[in-house]
Design a binder for these strands. Structure first.
Length: 322
DNA sequence: AAGACGAAAGTGGTTGA
DNA sequence: TCAACAACTTTCGTCTT
């Protein structure tokens, strides 16, 4: 029943976006690829990103449904607990006596014992809920600012819940942990965002964010592979308005660089930037080092150094650079 | 004049004793 | 815990287009 509801919804939004043919403004191709995971709409002809940062029309509560069954979600649980707490605004005394000082009957005693237990639990949970509520609204704000799609948010929310359970948030700001989980979620789904980009969008400085991120990796024992430079290029290339042949050449260059061992120990952002720089010159769509460095959030010097290494090792001479 | 180049000193993170 | 270290950044002067 719930399933039919959700497929119904899906069909509706699908009809909205697909019934009217979308045409690429660049090459007028109508083959448009929906990259839902990335939240982008990409032209199949030339690779131009037609629209990114799309509004996520999904219900926000779906983000928490994964855990709904095996953990007490913030939707169901607090209501039940508050019912138990109702009328018990004072703390239940630990002495098993009534108001006139008489001992309680065994049944009454076990009842009181149960109520006491619930009261403690409800306190624990409500503080966790307050934290979660704040964290989730920050997650919402941050991820829509960065244009991060639903599934990755969901993963971030899951990571955040785990970090609460592990008590990682204590003594740290909620904002920092949220940003860290979001950054981690992007990395896990191979849609990495530069750390600086995430830091800029939240009110957390880069250093704190990095610390929280590393803590997250250690404490939750998650293994996240090094981010692949290739994961960055479609975003960078569309920001620089480079055509898809340039993107393809960039990927080739990165593959070659990897086999030549140029990538180990190097900042993936710098590698992506340098590969784009080389490709843009080769295909006569030159961008300055500065422009590229800016979108990749590295310095010109780094672009230059990687560029030099690539040119030297891959034997690209001045002829093929035009 | 803008872009590219390279040297030198500084920074933050990792590693190994 | 501390020092050595590699990668990257900042800054700045010079060369090239």
């Amino acid at each position: 029943m719930d399933r039919t509801g959700s497929t119904e919804r899906k069909k509706d939004t699908g009809a909205d976006s697909l019934s009217e043919p979308i045409e690429c403004s660049e090459c007028h191709s109508t083959s448009v690829i929906e990259d839902l995971a990335r939240g982008e709409r990409v032209c199949g002809g030339c690779g131009l990103v037609l629209s990114d940062h799309r509004i996520d029309t999904g219900a926000e509560w779906r983000a928490f449904s994964a855990e709904e069954s095996d953990s007490r979600s913030r939707v169901g649980a607090p209501v039940r607990y508050t019912v138990h707490d109702k009328g018990l605004s004072t703390v239940i005394d630990w002495r098993d006596r009534d108001t006139s000082g008489r001992k309680l009957s065994p049944t009454r005693r076990s009842e009181i014992y149960r109520l006491r237990k619930w009261q403690i639990r409800s306190r624990v949970h409500s503080s966790m809920d307050r934290n979660l509520a704040q964290a989730m609204s920050e997650l919402e704000r941050l991820s829509s600012q960065l244009g991060i799609p639903g599934p990755i948010r969901e993963l971030a929310a899951l990571l955040y819940r785990k970090s609460i359970i592990k008590k990682l948030v204590r003594g740290r700001s909620i904002e920092a942990m949220v940003a860290a989980t979001l950054y981690a979620a992007c990395r896990i789904r191979q849609k990495p965002r530069p750390l600086d980009e995430v830091a800029d969008s939240s009110r957390v400085d880069r250093k704190k964010l990095g610390q929280c991120y590393r803590l997250l990796l250690r404490s939750l024992a998650i293994k996240i592979p090094l981010s692949n430079p290739i994961d960055y290029i479609s975003r960078f290339a569309s920001e620089l308005e480079l055509s898809s042949p340039v993107q393809l050449r960039t990927v080739e260059i990165l593959h070659q660089s990897r086999t030549m061992g140029l990538t180990i120990g190097r900042d993936p952002l710098g590698l992506a930037a340098a590969a784009i720089y080389v490709a843009s010159i080769m295909l006569d769509e030159r961008r300055t080092q500065r422009e590229i460095a800016e979108v990749a959030r590295v310095t010109e010097v780094t672009v230059r150094n990687r560029y030099k290494e690539i040119v030297k090792k891959l034997g690209i001479d001045s002829m093929s650079l035009g």
